[in-house]
Amino acid sequence: MNHVVTAAKRPESAANLPELMQRVAHGDEDAFSSLYDIVAAPVLRAAHTVLRDPAQSQEVTQEVLVELWHTAPRYRTDRGTVMNWVLTLAHRRAVDRVRSTAACSAREKRTAQLAHTPVFDAVSEEVETRMEHEQLRRCLLTLTEAQRQCLVLAYYQGMTSRQIAERLSLPLGTVKTRLRDGLIRLRDTLQVPA
C-alpha cells in the first residue's frame, strides 16, 4: 500500500508557525488545530518539567492552549519565535500553578493548626476569673458601708453620681467623695499601681 501525502494533508511544521499564528489571530480554527498539533507536546513537556505531576501538567497544557487561542493577536514576531512565546506562556503557567499549590497548602496547614490549637485554656481562664472575683469581694468588704454602697451602685448597676445622690438622698459632693475614697482604698488593697 502506497501512502501519498498531498499538499492539503501534509503535516504542518514548526517553520509554518508564524503563518499559523497570524491565521489563529484572525480566528481560523483550522490553523489553530494545526498549531495545536505542533505545540501541544512541547508545552506538555515544559509544564511537566516544572510541575512533575502528569495530571497538573495536562491541565496547564490545556490552559496554555486556550490562552494561546485568546491571546494570539498579541503575539509579536519582533519579540521572538512562536515556539519561544508559547513555551514562555507554558513556563509561566506552570510556575503560577506551583505557587498557587504551595499557597493553598500553606493555607490548609495554617487552618489545620488553628483548628487544633485551643484559643485559650478554658479551665485556667475560669479559675483566674473566680480568683479575681474573690479578691475583689474581699477588698469590697474592707470598705465602709457607705463607700461600698456607692461603688456597687456606680459599677455594678451603672448609675451616675447624680443618680446615686438622688437614690440615697445625699448631696452630689458626698457621693463623689465616697466613690473617690472607695476607689483609692480598693486600689491600695488590690495593690494596683497609681
Rank of each mutant, 00 (worst) to 15 (best):
V4G: 05
L140R: 07
S33W: 13
Q22A: 12
M83K: 08
K109P: 03
L183V: 08
D96G: 00
V123M: 10
V123Y: 06
A154E: 04
H48V: 04
N2Y: 15
A122L: 14
A47I: 00
L172F: 10
P73W: 07
V64P: 02
R92L: 08
A15V: 08
D53P: 04
A154F: 13
E59C: 01
T81S: 14
A94Q: 00
A90G: 06
T177W: 07
C104K: 13
T88Y: 09
A8E: 14
R45Q: 11
P18N: 02
P11D: 06
L20F: 05
T61N: 04
I164D: 06
Q56R: 09
A14F: 03
R74C: 01
E12L: 04
L65F: 04
L190G: 09
T6S: 14
T6Q: 08
R167W: 09
E166L: 09
L89D: 03
A31M: 06
N2D: 15
C139W: 02
M1V: 15
Q147S: 06
V119H: 14
E125N: 11
D28L: 01
H48E: 06
L179I: 13
L17D: 01
K109L: 13
R167E: 14
A41V: 09
H3C: 12
A165S: 12
A72C: 03
H26I: 11
Y155E: 04
S13C: 05
I38K: 00
A154D: 06
M21D: 00
M1E: 14
V192I: 14
A7F: 06
L151D: 07
E126S: 11
A15C: 02
Q149G: 09
R52K: 11
P193V: 06
V98E: 01
H48W: 07
V43L: 05
A102L: 09
L114F: 05
R52P: 04
G182V: 01
V50I: 05
Q163R: 09
